[in-house]
Amino acid sequence: MATSAAKLLPKEEYILPGTRSCAACGLMLTYRHALKALNPGKTIVAVPASCMTVLHGVYPVTPVKTICINNPFGATGAAASGIAAGLKALGHDDYTVLAFAGDGGTYDIGIQALSGALERGTNFLYICYDNEGYMNTGTQRSSASPAGAITSTTPVLSKLQHKKNMIGIIEAHRIPYIATASPSFPLDLFDKVKTARDTLGSRYMEIHAPCPPGWGFPNKDLIKMGKLAVDSGIHVLFEIKEGFFQLTSRSLNLAEKGKRKPVADYVKGQTRFKKINQQQVEALQDFVDKRWNEFLERHQKNS
C-alpha cells in the first residue's frame, strides 16, 4: 500500500538539527526520508568521501543516529560487502547494510567495487544520490553531469557528453530490485526505500538530489527543481522488480496523460546551463525523448 500523505511518515527524526550540509540540500532531504523508511537501530551505513561524510560530521560528534562507517572513495561496494559478510558470520540477519554514495562515488570512482558487490549478490542496499557532479569538492564534472552543464572542469565549452546510462549497467547484473526516486516526491521515495529494505539480495536505488549551490538556483526552489526534472523527463521515476519494469508516481501520471514539459523549462532556471545554446538544448531534448520512449515502451509492455 503506497504512503499517501505526509502524516503517515514516521514522526521520529534520525538526523539531529545543526548539520554541516548546505541550506536546502537535496541529499539531506533524501537521507532524512530514507532513514525514516529504514530502521536506523538496525542499519549500518557505508559512506565514501563525499557530501555524506561532511553531513556525518567531525569526530567526536555526529548528527546522525545510526551506525556509519567511513570508507575510501572507491570502496563503498567493497566496504558494504565486508559489513554484510561480518553480519552474516555473526548471525545478525536483522540488520540492513546501506551503502550511500554520490554520483561520483557510483558512476565513476566506485563503479568497480559496486559491480563486484552486485556480482557477488551481496545482501545490501546501495543508494546513489545523484547531484550530477563532484559537489563536495567544487562542482567538478562527473559522468552523471548532463550535457551542456558548466562545471569547474568544463568551464568553457560546458560538458559535451550525455549522462551515462548507469541503470543499464546495474540492470545487466540482474539484481532483484532497482528503483529511482526524487526527494521532491518524499512519499514515493519512502515507499521505495521500504520495499528495498524488505527485498533480499542486492538492491540499487538512484535518487536525483538537486544541489542549489552546484546547479545555481535559489535555495527555495529545491522542490520545484526536483519536480521539474521529473516533469521534463530528465529524471524518470520507476521500479524494476526482478526485471519487471514499471513507471511510478509522477512519471506514471505523465505516461498516462502525456504532458511532458520541455527540457528548456528545466534548463533555464539553472546558472550551470547559462552557456547552453539552442542546438545543445535540442540535443538534450532528443536524448531525453529517446530515453523516455524506451521506458514508456517497456512500461506498456508490462501493463
Binding site: 539531529l16 545543526g18 548539520t19 567531525v58 560528534v61 555526529t62 548528527p63 546522525v64
Partner: peptide, 18 residues
C-alpha cells in the same frame, strides 16, 4: 573508541547561517 556520538548542533548553531 574512535567512535562519534550523536549530538545536536554538530556544526554549531546553524541558525547563524540564515
Amino acid at each position: 573508541k574512535a567512535v562519534s556520538k550523536p549530538f545536536k548542533g554538530e556544526a554549531g548553531k546553524t541558525g547563524d547561517w540564515r
